[in-house]
Computed example of a mutant assay.
Amino acid sequence: MLKDLSGIIDIQYFEDDNGGVTVMTSGGKLLVSGVNINELSAEKSAEDDCYRVIWGSDSGNSVDITDSFQGGSLKALIDLRDNEIPQFMDTINDLAVSLATEVNNVHSTGYTANGVTGINFFRDIPTTGDYAAIIAISDEVDTSTDYIATTSSADSTTANDIALAIADLGSSSITIDGQSTTYTDYTASIEAQIGSLSQNAQELSEYHQNLLATVEAQRDSVSGVSIDEEMTNLIKFQTAYQAAARLLNTADALFTTLMEAFQ
């Protein structure tokens, strides 16, 4: 159980002379001391609706210890939730806002099939929030595809220079969050970052698995018992005992013979 717990959070524990076990977090919060326990619970934060880890003492005190963890699977999940995912969400939101803005800038200058201009392809862009989660085409385009602008000429509704200009945005130079790039390169960099994080996590996991196996092998070499080895030693000692017994019997017989010879 302690091994399983140490895989979830970083803990310290020791056993006293009476066999009682004391367990505490690496931050010094007591979890178990003999028959006394202090519980950990999850409570939703009013600030961001994210759950926090709360340590409660037997005296009724409660302390948020979410940020005190230094290792374990729970620490990894908290880091992912509070650091990695928000960074990628910001990156994707910047991409969505830039894409919608650039497309609207081009689309609104063109003429639709029904001769209307000034129509945005995407809905209005909010100044805050997760735009990537709510990005959508404008009400006009959603109502009818006749509101899709394809030409810059009011007299030629069959031309497609606006459509081509929008298509060219994928490789055009743009600025996202102060970075000069293209949409193709920007999305590729996001994929590369995710791939790098995934690979690093896999390599780190393998490293710690190997380290754990090494430590457990060292522990077993000191405290572990090999049944095969003990059986081999038992047979060896039994054989030695039998040989010693035969030697004593022989010596006793010789001693008896000598005593009889002098009588």
Rank of each mutant, 00 (worst) to 15 (best):
Ile119Phe: 04
Ala100Arg: 12
Thr112Phe: 04
Thr112Trp: 04
Asp130Ala: 14
Asn36Tyr: 12
Trp55Ala: 05
Leu31Thr: 02
Leu30His: 01
Val106Gly: 12
Thr112His: 01
Asn38Ala: 10
Leu31Trp: 00
Ala96Ser: 11
Gly110Ala: 01
Thr128Met: 09
Ser108His: 06
Asn93Arg: 09
Asn93Cys: 05
Ser33Ala: 13
Gly118Asp: 12
Ile135Leu: 08
Leu99Ser: 10
Asn114Cys: 01
Ala42Asp: 14
Arg123Leu: 13
Thr117Glu: 06
Glu47Tyr: 12
Ala136Tyr: 09
Glu84Ser: 15
Trp55Met: 07
Ser33Thr: 02
Phe69Asn: 00
Thr127Tyr: 09
Lys44His: 13
Glu102Ser: 14
Asp49Gly: 11
Asp79Arg: 12
Ala100Ile: 08
Ser138Arg: 01
Ser138Tyr: 02
Ser26Gln: 14
Thr127Gln: 11
Gln87Ser: 15
Val63Gly: 08
Gly56Asn: 13
Asp58Thr: 11
Asp67Lys: 13
Val97Cys: 10
Thr91Arg: 05
Ser98Cys: 10
Gly27Asn: 00
Lys29Ile: 03
Gly129His: 04
Tyr131Ala: 09
Phe69Trp: 03
Asn93Leu: 04
Tyr111Thr: 03
Thr117Trp: 06
Val103Gln: 11
Lys44Asn: 15
Asn83Trp: 07
Asn105Glu: 15
Ala100Asp: 03
Gln70Ala: 07
Thr91Ala: 00
Ile119His: 07
Asn38Ile: 05
Gly28Leu: 01
Val116Asp: 03
Asp79Val: 05
Leu30Glu: 05
Arg52Pro: 03
Ile85Met: 06
Cys50Gly: 14
Glu39Gly: 05
Thr112Ser: 03
Thr127Pro: 04
Thr91Ile: 06
Ser59Tyr: 12
Gly56Cys: 09
Thr128Lys: 09
